[in-house]
């Protein structure tokens, strides 16, 4: 599983790479586009996702100590869905600005949608797997592996959040 996660890191690689290039060569455009992000919603979402990792870890512990992990797993699913819901709202409300952006700002929005979109796809897959586990899993192994995947998605978001939401907020 860790080998798979290494693959995933590199899968996100080109997106991070494009972002760093933009940040280095078009700092003003990236900062001004970043100001259009919903920082409150973004922060809330970060908190939600971090909490979901917490519930996921508790789910694994429950299964290791022969208690039912179901409650924790469903809670994780719920938090994941909440994240996606908020994200979806952000996407639609930012769309018009993104479509009319030009130059470096357009690149910022492109990267924003591509990177967080890829992240959202991963999360949706994660939600599907965790729901399935909550319905069926008896054993510890699949929960552990899925947990690693879930935490990985969380870590990716931990970096995406300051990258897209927190540029020169004081300005």
């Amino acid at each position: 599983m860790w080998a798979f996660l290494a693959t995933e890191v590199l899968f996100f690689g080109p997106l991070f790479f494009g972002y760093v290039h933009g940040r280095a060569f078009q700092p003003e455009a990236f900062a001004s586009a970043s100001h259009h992000m919903h920082v409150v919603l973004g922060t809330l979402n970060t908190a939600i996702l971090l909490t979901s990792s917490f519930t996921m870890a508790l789910g694994l512990r429950a299964s290791q100590t022969d208690r039912s992990p179901r409650l924790w797993l469903w809670l994780t699913v719920l938090l994941g869905l909440a994240f996606l819901g908020i994200k979806g709202y952000e996407y639609t409300s930012e769309w018009s600005e993104a479509a009319s952006a030009a130059g470096g700002e357009a690149r910022f929005y492109f990267l924003y949608y591509a990177t967080t979109g890829l992240h959202a796809v991963h999360l949706a897959i994660g939600i599907a797997i965790v729901s399935w586990l909550a319905l069926r899993a008896r054993r510890e192994m699949p929960i552990e592996v899925t947990g690693l995947y879930w935490h990985f998605i969380d870590i990716v978001w931990v970096f995406l959040y300051p990258m897209f939401y927190l540029l020169e907020r004081y300005g």
Binding site: F17, H21, A29, G103, G104, A106, R107, Y109, F110, L111
Partner: peptide
């Protein structure tokens, strides 16, 4: 598809990326 992206020099991008 979208006509925007990270490689387009017109938007400040770099084909060498």
């Amino acid at each position: 598809v979208f006509g925007i992206g990270i490689f387009d020099p017109a938007l400040g991008g770099d084909p060498l990326l």
